[in-house]
Computed example of a mutant assay.
Amino acid sequence: MPETRFKPLAWTKLQRGVPCYLPQPPARQRVDVHSPALSVMTDFQRLTPITVRHDMSLDEANRIMGLSHAQYLLVADGQNHLLGIASEASTRGHHPLAVAHQLGIRPGELTVGEVMIKKHDDAEVMHLRDVRTASVGNVLAALKELASPFCLVVDHDEEDHHVLCGIFSLAHIERLMGVTPSVEVAQTFSQVVSSLGR
């Protein structure tokens, strides 16, 4: 039978003027194209992604991204099935203005679902089993071929169904590599992937 009576730990009064020592984040090693791909993947088991409804207003989504310093939001339907990704590039600047013009509505009336990067059943994903043995250079080459700043990573359950487990973000990889992020995806790829041949 487990012990149910415990002696309480001792305690005391907090002293005045105690400095608050916050834990220092571990120093990140510089990432290059030969680093393991897992070192630049955002692992959803360690960092839960922010997920929003597809009918959320674009203004609210931008507010959430600003407050959380997130570069993207996952977009889901009422059953929590993935519909797409809302990135800063798709929620700010020219893109939402063009979408609003095309739909004949004001930009303030836009929802996340109308500007997101759509991810349907045939969307390209990378498999965790491949990522485990890949390098950052392999990931960059794949993103270039896909012409996309994001790629989701899936694992497989016992029945071989996809289970969303991570994401590669070009902006995140750039930051870890010390590359200055650029606005145009094509320019970004030419900057980052130029190091593949080194």
Score class of each variant (00 low, 15 high):
157 D>K: 05
72 Y>T: 00
77 D>I: 12
140 L>Q: 01
54 H>D: 15
21 Y>H: 10
105 I>W: 04
175 R>W: 05
171 A>F: 03
58 L>M: 13
128 L>H: 04
134 A>K: 01
198 R>Q: 12
198 R>T: 09
34 H>R: 13
19 P>W: 06
48 T>G: 01
30 R>D: 10
108 G>N: 12
121 D>N: 07
59 D>V: 13
36 P>K: 12
95 H>P: 00
2 P>T: 07
151 C>N: 02
14 L>C: 05
73 L>W: 04
164 L>G: 05
84 G>L: 09
72 Y>F: 15
124 E>F: 11
3 E>D: 09
166 G>A: 04
142 A>W: 00
149 P>S: 09
180 T>V: 14
135 S>T: 14
165 C>P: 00
95 H>Y: 15
19 P>Y: 07
25 P>S: 10
26 P>N: 06
22 L>Q: 14
77 D>Q: 10
163 V>I: 13
79 Q>T: 08
162 H>L: 01
40 V>H: 01
90 S>P: 02
140 L>H: 02
164 L>Q: 09
32 D>C: 02
175 R>D: 13
122 D>T: 06
179 V>S: 03
15 Q>T: 09
189 F>Y: 09
27 A>N: 10
14 L>N: 04
39 S>R: 04
139 V>T: 00
53 R>C: 05
157 D>V: 09
63 R>M: 12
70 A>I: 02
92 R>W: 09
76 A>R: 11
5 R>C: 03
180 T>W: 01
74 L>S: 05
38 L>T: 13
81 H>W: 05
28 R>K: 14
138 N>Q: 05
110 L>P: 03
49 P>L: 12
194 S>C: 05
70 A>M: 06
128 L>Q: 08
151 C>A: 13
167 I>A: 04
111 T>C: 11
119 K>N: 06
120 H>L: 07
159 E>H: 12
24 Q>D: 11
121 D>C: 00
44 F>V: 10
109 E>L: 08
190 S>D: 15
112 V>Q: 04
115 V>P: 08
176 L>Y: 02
79 Q>R: 14
117 I>W: 01
